[in-house]
Amino acid sequence: MDYKSVKRFVPENASREIPPGNPACPVNGRDVYRALASHKTIVMACNIRIPLVIPGIMRAAKEMDAVVAFELAKSEGDLKGGYTGMTPEIFVRTIVAAAKRAEFDTPFVIHGDHITVKNTTEAEVEGARALIAAELAAGYTSFAIDASFNEIPDNARITASLAGPIAERGLGLEVEVGEIKSAGTEAHLSTVGEAVELMERLTAAGVHPDLLAINNGSKHGNYLEGEKISIDLDRTGEIYRAIHDRFGVSIAQHGITGTPLHLIGKFAEYGIRKGNVGTQWQNIAHAGLPPELMGRMREWAKGAGKDIKFATKPFKAEIDAVPAPVASMIEKAAYDEAKLLFQAFRAAGTAKIVAGALVGRA
């Protein structure tokens, strides 16, 4: 499908980052989430730590006519580049350049994942405010303010204080209740009462999110060997029913890496409309990188006492410069995985739905 007619709906902050002749079509996350809210489908949001996977994801999205989101969390890409070496500006330029090479004109979202505020100090809050400003300037079209580390009154207050510039532009907004832990750790699962309280407080403050991320038992990162995957979909559905009709909010699912496709296929039935996949793309890139390079990355991580993901930044130049056959192999693996995930997410044809909603609204 030709999406040239949709280009006029690209938000101003994103459109100025697209050179003439580039087909990239980053649309407003809010437009996407609202257009798909009544459909039992899920927007796949891909945390891109290693850009080599982007062409494969784009190719699959175009083939399946699926809206996709490309995202970086604060830890992955802050003002100093996080542990990926990509600042917001570098990230957007990377996506836009990839769209040009792939002739990718299917509508997509650029999302600021996990803009975390881990405590109530002024320095922590202002750091998040500066990151939001940088992401807006770079061309992001959707944002996740994550103050879930704090008690709900503080979570709501901090979220409301940071959401102003996003709301002024009418861009996509995700918030979070119940901190989502890393694999191998336990955390309190979000409750209906907590979700409703956060939404009530945000509504009273004039903040109207599109998505709520909850802790329903999923984990970030790779699951440990033998670790059980236990996602409470019944609880998810209860929370969704409590917040959707009253506040117009759907559920964002984090921590999908390692989840069986047959279980992912059920997510849309429980109000999940955005699903984050991050570590899986890293795993695919790592599996395709030259063994000698991966060996040095593992040695670096072991010596630093850190997870292998932290080797991404110091080895970024080498990763980006792998030989063309290696890049092609990683692209193919990402394409194959993306097709399977788009199918599980029931995302085929969502780009046409979003385009129809935008054009019909004009």
Results as ranks from 00 to 15, higher is better:
Gly295Arg: 05
Trp300Gly: 01
Gly271His: 00
Pro314Cys: 14
Ala268Ser: 15
Tyr223Pro: 00
Gly255Phe: 07
Ile264Val: 12
His244Gln: 08
Ile243Thr: 08
Lys316Glu: 02
Ile256Asp: 02
Thr279Arg: 15
Leu233Glu: 04
Ala311His: 12
His254Pro: 03
Tyr223Asp: 08
Lys316Thr: 07
Ile231Trp: 01
Leu289Ile: 11
Pro323Gly: 06
Gly258Ser: 09
Glu299Leu: 12
Lys302Cys: 06
Leu289Tyr: 03
Gln280Thr: 09
Lys266Thr: 05
His286Lys: 13
His244Leu: 01
Ala285His: 04
Ile264Glu: 00
Thr236Val: 10
Ala268Glu: 07
Ser328Gln: 15
Glu318Tyr: 05
Gly278Ser: 11
Ala287Arg: 11
Leu224Arg: 15
Ala317Ser: 12
Ala304His: 13
Arg246Val: 07
Gly255Gln: 08
Arg298Pro: 02
Glu227Asn: 13
Glu238Lys: 07
Pro325Glu: 12
Asp245Cys: 11
Thr279Ala: 14
Gly275Asp: 01
Ala304Tyr: 08
Gly295Pro: 05
Lys274Ala: 04
His244Ile: 01
Arg298Ala: 10
Leu261Arg: 13
Pro314Asn: 13
Pro290Arg: 04
Gly278Tyr: 07
Ile231Glu: 01
Glu238His: 04
Ile243Pro: 00
Tyr270Leu: 03
Ile229Gln: 03
Gln280Arg: 10
Lys313Ser: 07
Lys313Val: 06
Ala252Gln: 02
Gly303Thr: 05
Lys266Leu: 10
Ile231Lys: 01
Glu227Leu: 04
Gln253Tyr: 04
Pro323Asp: 05
Tyr223Val: 06
Asp234Glu: 14
Thr236Leu: 04
Ile243Phe: 06
Glu227Gln: 14
Leu293Cys: 11
Ser250Lys: 09
Val322Thr: 10
Met329Gly: 13
Glu318Met: 08
Trp281Leu: 14
Pro323Cys: 05
Ile284Glu: 01
Ile284Pro: 00
Gly305Glu: 06
Ile256Ser: 10
Leu289Asp: 00
Ile264Phe: 02
Met297Pro: 03
Gln282Asp: 13
Leu233Ser: 08
Thr236Lys: 01
Ile251Cys: 04
Gly275Ala: 12
Met294Arg: 14
Asp307Tyr: 04
Leu224Tyr: 14
Ala321Arg: 11
Arg273Met: 01
Ala287Ile: 06
Lys274Thr: 02
Arg246Asn: 05
Glu225Tyr: 10
His286Pro: 00
Glu318Asn: 07
Gly271Leu: 00
Thr257Arg: 05
Lys313Glu: 09
Leu289Lys: 02
Gly248Tyr: 03
Glu269Asp: 14
Val249Ala: 11
Lys316His: 10
Leu233Trp: 03
Thr312Met: 09
Ile239Val: 10
Ser328Asp: 15
Tyr270Ser: 02
Ser250Val: 09
Gly271Thr: 09
Asp234Ser: 08
Ile308Gly: 04
Thr236Gln: 03
Ser230Leu: 12
Leu263Thr: 06
Glu269Phe: 02
Arg296Met: 09
Ala252Leu: 14
Met297Asn: 03
Ile284Trp: 11
Lys274Gln: 09
Lys306Trp: 06
Ala304Arg: 15
Leu289Met: 12
Ala311Arg: 07
Pro325Gly: 13
Met329Gln: 13
Gly305Met: 05
Lys316Ile: 08
Leu263Cys: 00
Val322Asn: 08
His286Leu: 15
Lys309Asp: 03
Gly278Met: 07
Gly271Trp: 00
Tyr270Met: 04
Pro314Gly: 14
Ile284Phe: 12
Gly295His: 08
Thr279Asn: 14
Val249Asn: 04
Lys266Cys: 01
Ala321Leu: 11
Leu261Gly: 07
Thr257Trp: 09
